[in-house]
């Protein structure tokens, strides 16, 4: 966990990796209410021109929220969080797809820090310009 006294601008944050699979897509669809079939139904996803079922952009962002929560002292430490949805995370049946998060401190102001984070899956950046403002004690 990040501590106020040993932070530096440019400091790299410990990476973390999370797994997405079809079961998690179903759980997230139920928990978020987003039942769009492109996130669950392979036939439907392909019929609209997608390579396969894709993860919800907001699910990838939610994993980013988990990454930040675990770096800081829980979800209450996150004051701002933004991201672009650049590439979808493709989730084939029976596969566990890894999303790897990394981050860097870009600014420190008292007990608030700004961080830039990156999310990659199969070597591709899946979130763009992802940034957060965290309170660190």
């Amino acid at each position: 966990m990040l501590k106020k006294d040993d932070l530096q601008v440019g400091q790299l944050l410990a990476p973390a990796s999370f797994i997405v699979n079809r079961k998690i897509l179903k759980s997230y669809a139920d928990a978020s209410g987003d039942q769009n079939p492109i996130h669950q139904d392979e036939e439907f996803a392909k019929s609209v021109g997608l390579p396969n079922v894709i993860a919800h952009g907001m699910l990838t962002m939610a994993f980013g929220g988990r990454y930040l929560s675990e770096l800081a002292d829980g979800p209450g430490s996150i004051k701002e969080f933004s991201s672009r949805f650049t590439k979808p995370v493709v989730v084939a049946e029976g596969e566990d797809v890894e999303i790897i998060f990394t981050g860097k401190i870009s600014e420190i102001d008292g007990n608030q820090i700004k961080v830039d984070i990156e999310a990659r899956s199969s070597g591709e950046k899946v979130l763009g310009m992802a940034k957060a403002l965290l309170v660190i004690n």
């Binding site: 999370f18 928990a31 988990r66 929560s69 829980g74 979800p75 209450g76 969080f81």
Partner: peptide, 15 residues
């Protein structure tokens, strides 16, 4: 639970 995050009193930021 869906994102494997420890449940807490306050909601995750994207909730």
């Amino acid at each position: 639970n869906a994102i494997g995050q420890l449940n807490s009193e306050v909601a995750p930021p994207t909730y």
